[in-house]
């Protein structure tokens, strides 16, 4: 195995007509990596929260705004009712702290798709594109984002950021390696593979519903 490795690296250097990089060059490349230089961003003047809502809706996500965290459980229940869904959800263990209404059955943990709806938090919401950023982890299993037909995501106003560059910066500030999966999700799953007709609900959620909690300041 290591011989193929040496072979490929050797061919690269041969094609580039040089040997292994000199210390100086390596130091320059190290510096480039740790600088995390950003490039052009997509400029916009709109308020970040308004833009996020706009963009998310344009990608077929739905948005409900609530004034405070205390109203989240009711907003979840309302959503389930309006779609004639059973009063059962799978939820990220990170949401254990919420006071869930008694009539709602909440299963904390991962899912194999036996749940029709899942509720999760997110790391951030990106105004540039209307994307949600979710991290895998003990408190937020990835299967919740993918297998149930309905994905309900709780976004605090303060989590709305302007662009992806801000997300990468936030991730680095956690001072840990990246989690196994960082999901950037923009609306529900879709396909255009049959006659280029867009159809929602290809393999992932058929619906993505965002509950935006208005207390707390937007960082955009």
């Amino acid at each position: 195995m290591s011989t193929s490795r040496e072979k490929v690296l050797g061919r690269i250097r041969q094609s580039l007509r040089r040997g292994p990089l000199e210390e100086q060059t390596r130091a320059r490349l190290e510096a480039r990596l740790s600088a995390h230089a950003t490039h052009s961003r997509i400029a916009f003047t709109a308020d970040a929260v308004e833009r996020f809502i706009d963009k998310a809706q344009s990608q077929a996500a739905t948005v409900a705004r609530v004034a405070s965290a205390a109203q989240v459980p009711d907003a979840v229940a309302d959503y389930l009712k309006s779609h004639n869904l059973p009063a059962t959800v799978a939820a990220a263990p990170a949401l254990r702290g919420i006071e869930w209404p008694r009539h709602l059955t909440v299963a904390f943990g991962a899912t194999r798709g036996e749940h029709e709806a899942a509720v999760t938090p997110c790391l951030a919401a990106v105004a540039e594109t209307g994307s949600l950023v979710l991290l895998s982890g003990e408190d937020s299993p990835t299967t919740l984002n993918l297998l149930p037909d309905n994905h309900i995501v709780i976004v605090n106003r303060s989590q709305v950021v302007r662009d992806f560059e801000t997300v990468w910066q936030t991730l680095r500030e956690r001072d840990a390696p990246l989690p196994r999966a960082v999901n950037l999700i923009t609306g529900p799953s879709r396909t255009a593979d049959i006659e280029q007709t867009i159809q929602l609900g290809a393999h992932g959620p058929r619906r993505v519903h965002i509950i935006l909690v208005d207390d707390g300041e937007g960082s955009g």
């Binding site: 895998s136 982890g137 196994r180 999966a181 923009t186």
Partner: peptide, 24 residues
């Protein structure tokens, strides 16, 4: 590719499941 501002799923995968992870 498709004229989208963002594809529906862009995922950054890094390594296998971590201690404590419930899936992956």
């Amino acid at each position: 590719a498709t004229g989208q501002e963002a594809s529906t799923y862009t995922t950054v995968f890094s390594g296998p499941r971590r201690a404590g992870d419930r899936d992956g």
